[in-house]
């Protein structure tokens, strides 16, 4: 559905996108997951024909974004990161203006407008000015607007940015519904790990303009190598080989007076691991999340900064007596 090939976007000497290549399949939800400034919006702008790449190119729905921009535009719907609806107009009027811009024939227009309004649950608020909408409603209106002309590909740039947790969940519900009912390929960008995990069939981790990993959420989590255990010592930290001698341990990382161990089946193997250890102060255990995958891939797991906060999914404290 989308093919990106050796895409480079430079702002002066700064490479916002650095030789990106990947494909998006038909009818999948593809997530572009990465921190602020990773290049997500820049990529969406290029795929939506608003920005010209410095090098490389992309094909969307069979059309070249550089040479066949008009066909690409007919094939796509876009929800931008910043609000782009007119807040002086009503929800309905915003949709009508866009239905006209897309040349939707008069006979179909009203029907389609009601359809998309229902789809995003705004049917009863359509005659209110958009300035009276909440952030989540406004974003939903823009989703409805983007779907008016039955696009094949739908871009959502940070659809839940700035929404409170409840509105975010509502938004997820609607995004899933759209995939079911509208049969579109969705590319969504986000910097929320759990959002990508929850919604996406495949995820591309993007940072500094590069995709550093691309797979389904479960495969990505497997890649990290099983469960994660962090053992903190009150005094002497044992050698790596005290851990790697076990077959079930994949990898050991050190950080001050603790070690982070990637291992299989923590439930059955933990007692073996710690049987011969002295001075254990705490043991933390968790299932890997996308967050861990990302931190491991971007190489700053050891710094311990996790953007989502909270290292623990499950916390166990163990003191050897």
């Amino acid at each position: 559905m989308i093919t990106v090939k050796n895409l480079v976007k430079k702002y002066a000497d700064f490479k916002a996108l650095d030789d990106l290549s990947f494909e998006v399949n038909e009818n999948e939800i593809f997530g572009l997951l990465g921190p602020n400034g990773a290049g997500k919006t820049t990529l969406i702008h290029i795929l939506a024909t608003l920005l010209k790449p410095t090098e490389g190119g992309a094909i969307v729905n069979g059309f070249d974004v550089l040479h066949n921009a008009n066909k690409v535009r007919q094939s796509i719907g876009v929800v931008f990161q910043a609000p782009s609806s007119d807040d002086i107009l009503t929800g309905y009027e915003n949709l009508k203006v866009h239905a006209l811009l897309y040349g939707i024939p008069r006979k179909l227009r009203e029907k389609r407008i009601s359809e998309v309004l229902e789809l995003v649950g705004l049917g009863d608020r359509k005659n209110d000015q958009v300035k009276k909408y909440s952030g989540g409603m406004r974003r939903r209106l823009e989703i409805a607007r983007g779907l008016l002309h039955h696009p094949k590909v739908f871009f959502l740039d940070e659809p839940t940015l700035g929404l409170d947790p409840k509105s975010r969940e509502t938004m997820w519900k609607y995004i899933k519904k759209i995939v079911r009912e509208e049969k579109v390929t969705i590319i969504l960008t986000t910097h929320y790990m759990e959002e990508a995990d929850m919604l996406c069939d495949r995820i591309g981790f993007i940072t500094n303009g590069r995709i550093i990993a691309l797979d389904s959420p479960s495969k990505l989590k497997q890649e990290i190598g099983g469960d994660i255990v962090k053992i903190t010592f009150s005094d002497r930290v044992p050698l790596d080989k005290d851990f790697t001698k076990f077959d079930f341990v994949h990898k050991v990382e050190r950080k001050e007076n603790s070690v982070i161990i990637y291992m299989e089946k923590v439930n059955s193997n933990l007692h073996m691991l710690i049987k011969d250890l002295d001075d254990v102060q705490t043991i933390e255990y968790k299932k890997p999340t996308l967050n861990d995958v990302f931190l491991k891939l971007s190489g700053d797991y050891l710094s311990g900064d996790s953007p989502e906060g909270g290292f623990m999914q499950r916390y166990a404290q163990y003191k050897k007596s």
Binding site: L50, P83, G103
Partner: peptide
């Protein structure tokens, strides 16, 4: 400045 123009520019006009 506000993204309205973008939403017009991605339409096939």
């Amino acid at each position: 400045k506000f993204d309205f123009l973008k939403s017009v520019m991605v339409a096939p006009s």
